[in-house]
């Protein structure tokens, strides 16, 4: 398979916040899920990664913050190669990358505000976490973020398992912002939500990216949502990037290459 859209890759030396070079991941030897991925993500806006399920989108995102260890390649972020970091150095780098999950992954038995404050766990010492004595600034910011994601103060002390899917995802987003990240990764953030809530959540993420100047990389299989909210679309198929460019440039021929066949178009 050829790199159909390699010409659309941003020029070297642009405001590259995240640079992925020759990234390869094999869960089983000889069966690569990601084949030689190279990408540059700029320091602003929403980037959507689209592609059929099982194509390695989720693995790619998880390689960036090293929830999954890449087999080979480099991941440059804020001047360090994340692929080579280990232990505390990796942890400190990871503080700057927030993550939003498909199934929200809130700690169900904790309250909303505790889940949001979890975003500070890379910064606060264990005794503070144990006694829930988070710094007053953090608590104030957590309240503000709960407001900002559209939940309001009343939600702060509710337990996460009492919330609806959309509300949980808002808490998940607040948790990610709480980290003061330089980049937010979102792994299928709308796949477990109904269509209306999906739009609301995408709207919220686009707004956050804009207002707080945090670049967001979103895995998403819904092409329409990607077109509507992303400034850049990366199409993946079988572990390779087959399209990389603006939403306007994404035509049916590209989609055919990404998803295969054309019956569904």
């Amino acid at each position: 398979m050829t790199h159909a859209a390699s010409a659309a890759t941003p020029a070297e030396g642009s405001a590259g916040l995240l640079a992925i070079r020759h990234l390869r991941k094999e869960y089983r030897a000889g069966q690569p899920v990601l084949k030689d991925i190279s990408l540059d993500i700029e320091g602003r806006g929403v980037t959507a990664i689209i592609g059929p399920s099982g194509t390695g989108k989720s693995t790619l995102i998880r390689c960036i913050n090293r929830l999954v260890d890449p087999t080979s390649g480099e991941i440059w972020f804020e001047g360090r190669d994340l692929a080579r970091l280990r232990g505390d150095a990796l942890r400190l780098a990871r503080r700057r990358i927030g993550m939003v999950f498909q199934e929200y992954n809130l700690v169900e038995r904790l309250s909303v505000i505790e889940n949001v404050l979890s975003g500070r766990l890379g910064y606060v010492p264990a005794w503070r976490a144990f006694l829930r004595r988070f710094p007053a600034d953090d608590v104030a910011r957590a309240f503000d973020l709960i407001d900002a994601v559209g939940l309001g103060e009343d939600f702060a002390t509710r337990r996460a398992d009492q919330l609806s899917g959309g509300q949980r995802q808002r808490v998940g987003i607040a948790r990610a912002i709480m980290q003061s990240p330089g980049l937010i990764l979102a792994d299928e953030p709308t796949s477990s939500l109904d269509p209306k809530t999906s739009v609301e959540i995408m709207e919220l993420m686009a707004q956050i990216s804009r207002e707080r100047s945090i670049p967001i990389v979103i895995n998403i299989h819904n092409v329409e949502l990607a077109r509507r909210y992303a400034q850049r679309i990366i199409g993946m198929s079988r572990g390779e990037v087959v399209y990389d460019g603006s939403p306007d440039g994404l035509g049916d021929s590209h989609l055919k290459e990404i998803y295969g066949g054309e019956d569904w178009l």
Binding site: N65, L67, D88, R91, L92, A93, R94, R95, I97, G98, M99, F101, E103, N105, L106, V107, E108, L110, E114, S118, G119, R120, L121, G122, V124, A126, A129, F130, G172, R175, Q179
Partner: peptide, 20 residues
């Protein structure tokens, strides 16, 4: 998954234990 999410916030092991 809940543990993975807290790990992704860069929490050190002890904090993962405490909060996740």
């Amino acid at each position: 998954k809940q543990v993975e999410a807290v790990r992704a916030t860069a929490a050190p092991f002890l904090n993962v234990l405490i909060m996740a």
